[in-house]
């Protein structure tokens, strides 16, 4: 029995009459996490993890946001729904759906390495697993995060000795918070772009204990910038806003930085393949841990990933969705970018 249909509004559970991460306004939406390609504006009621609510509030404005904690069941039309940590960003969840003995899990975005703030990815047994595969090719093989943090810290130190400001581009929700601790080890003051700052303060208000940051303001003294780190969304790259940091070096934190050509295209001084998505092995491990017989591969390298799953004896299928599958902010057509407005 199919618990999820792939419709033009997104993933729909007919039995429970709700959508998961719909890309058009619907009556009832279950949201995996707060990134703009998953949490979209306009639905009447949202259900999300308690940690995701403050994020939805700053991104989508006021609305009806029902929350639930990890593993606590919620019923819609007799369909049992529960959320389980996905390890992608703060509050990110996999959605487990159970109805008449059948269990499906929608992964949302996930990573299998525990980053200390997003919750540890929890494998959930199911019959059918709908998995993202943003990095679903074997060339995506992440180094352990501590090694990447070492690389980032070494890069910052070398910029410091050259008298440069280090500008790190990272997704303002998720990676910007993740890199705070490693960066704070080598840098007394961390400055941020307004978009990062807004997320930061919203999370602090919600009770998160994060290393302190300062927002870059027009009157931020130049001395404060020198040798320190600025964290900004990639949309700030090359904008006039960057001028006041000169001399500076730029570094991009994204899984796409795994490939030389992508690093060169971005013209940054350094690329760090630090991702909030699972790498190839992480995806395979996650799929196997669910025990699912059928796996729908969505947003990413669906064709290759599902074909490989089929070759290793699973029922791998490919589904097209409207999720960006990107690691960096992409403006969504028609939706005002609330982060940038206040930047």
């Amino acid at each position: 029995m199919a618990l999820i249909d792939f419709t033009e509004n997104g993933m729909y559970c007919r039995a429970g009459d709700f959508y998961i991460d719909p890309w058009r306004p619907v009556d009832r939406a279950v949201i995996t996490h707060g990134h703009s390609d998953h949490a979209r504006w306009g639905s009447k009621a949202y259900l999300c993890h308690i940690h995701t609510k403050p994020i939805l509030e700053i991104r989508l404005g006021p609305g009806q946001y029902d929350t639930v904690d990890w593993g606590v069941p919620v019923y819609m039309n007799g369909v049992r729904i529960s959320l389980h940590p996905a390890g992608h960003i703060i509050g990110s969840a996999q959605v487990r759906i159970e109805h008449e003995g059948e269990v499906w899990v929608v992964s949302g975005d996930y990573k299998t390495e525990n980053d200390g703030i997003s919750g540890a990815f929890e494998p959930v047994r199911c019959h059918t697993f709908i998995s993202e595969c943003t990095f679903g090719l074997p060339l995506y093989k992440w180094k352990p995060q501590e090694d990447i943090y070492d690389d980032i810290r070494n890069w910052i130190r070398s910029n410091q000795s050259a008298g440069k400001t280090s500008v790190l581009f990272a997704y303002s929700l998720g990676k910007a918070q993740r890199i705070l601790r490693p960066v704070a080890d080598v840098c007394p003051t961390i400055l941020t772009h307004g978009a990062v700052y807004n997320v930061h303060t919203a999370l602090e208000r919600a009770g998160w204990d994060l290393p302190a940051v300062q927002r870059v303001m027009p009157d931020t003294p130049k001395d404060l910038l020198k040798g320190n780190v600025v964290i900004a969304p990639s949309s700030a790259e090359g904008s006039p806003w960057m001028k006041k940091f000169a001399p500076y070096a730029t570094g991009i934190c994204s899984g796409w930085m795994q490939v030389r050509g992508n690093r060169r295209r971005r013209n940054a001084d350094a690329g760090f393949a630090l991702s909030d998505h699972a790498d190839w092995q992480g995806l395979l491990d996650a799929v196997k841990a669910t025990g699912a017989e059928r796996v729908y591969a969505t947003h990413g390298f669906q064709a290759a990933f599902s074909r490989y799953l089929t070759e290793i004896g699973l029922d791998g299928r490919e589904v097209k969705t409207e999720f960006g599958g990107e690691e960096e902010e992409q403006p969504t057509p028609g939706v005002p970018d609330l982060d940038e407005e206040t930047a």
Binding site: L137, P138, L139, K141, Q258, V259, R260, G261, F301, A304, R307, Y308, E311
Partner: peptide
Amino acid sequence: LNGLPFWLFEESYHTVGDLAETIALL
């Protein structure tokens, strides 16, 4: 050496766009 099917090597190559780098990554 990596035990992957050849087609998956080719898929990776088309994404990386450089043979030397594809091999180094795989």
